[in-house]
Simulated assay, not measured.
Amino acid sequence: MQKNLIEVRHIQKVYNERLVLNNIDFTIAAGDFVALVGMSGGGKSTLLRLLAGLEAPTSGEILQNDVAVTGLNTKCRVMFQEDRLLPWFNVLKNVTLGDKQPEQIAKATELLDLVELADFSAAYPQSLSGGQKQRVALARALMADPELLLLDEPLGALDALTRQKMQKLILKIWQKRQVTIVLVTHDVTEAVRMATKVLVIKDQKIAWQTAIDLTYPRKNLVEVDQAAQQITQVILDEHQEKEA
């Protein structure tokens, strides 16, 4: 049995007297790929920020390796929808954040090869496509060897073909580096294609969670579509509330 990396216990989050998350409980096993799905404004990104320690819960607690997350979670990294690259740094320096130590440069070079940008280390962000910028951001996130990688809709602004390529790349990195990943996405089909487990957030709660027991790569479109339709029905049906 896999050890739980993350335990979320009775989390509640309130903003200006507005309840955003209410009594959230779930666990994430080490090596899992978890997708958070739900309607816009449902609290998915808020939950990601709580896992990263960028915000504190109003009540409840989050444990990582049995230790409470208080303040910034240094054992995780976040990849946002915006690439947030520094325009005055080239690709290599964006990955190292300007660190000139030889071991850091060597590590960044290896990561750029992993994200298929080995030939772009001297390029600047303004010359890159949207997908290339996100690959640089992914390499930068991996520089710290995080236990937990949080992806906040990083593929949302990409065209369909580039998005599919990024999905495959993220899966390759997840399988190769065995990092635990939590992905926020509005695309239920994307969640089914990528995740080992999907959590549906609705009405400020975890309305449903289910394992996706499909083998990788998930090329059987009928199976993917059936699983996606089932999850979509949970999101859209106001009276349906399940737990699996």
Rank of each mutant, 00 (worst) to 15 (best):
N4I: 00
R9W: 02
Y15H: 05
L19N: 03
D25L: 05
I28T: 02
I28R: 00
V34D: 04
A35I: 07
V37M: 11
S40H: 05
G41Q: 13
L50R: 04
L51N: 04
G53K: 08
L54W: 01
P57T: 07
T58Y: 07
G60S: 11
E61A: 14
Q64W: 04
T70H: 12
V78S: 00
Q81P: 03
E82G: 07
D83C: 03
R84A: 14
R84Q: 15
R84P: 09
R84D: 14
L86R: 01
L86I: 12
P87Q: 07
P87W: 10
F89P: 07
N90G: 06
V91F: 00
N94E: 04
V95T: 00
L97I: 01
G98P: 02
E103M: 10
I105E: 14
L112Q: 02
L112C: 03
D113C: 08
D113T: 12
L114C: 06
A118Y: 10
Q126M: 15
Q132T: 03
K133T: 12
R135P: 05
M143Y: 01
A144P: 05
L151H: 05
E153A: 04
A160Y: 13
L161W: 10
T162K: 04
R163C: 07
I170Q: 01
Q175P: 07
Q178K: 15
I181C: 08
V182L: 11
L183H: 05
D187N: 13
M194D: 06
L199S: 13
I201V: 06
D203G: 00
A211F: 10
P217N: 13
N220C: 02
V224P: 00
Q230F: 09
I231K: 00
Q233D: 11
H239R: 15
A244Q: 10
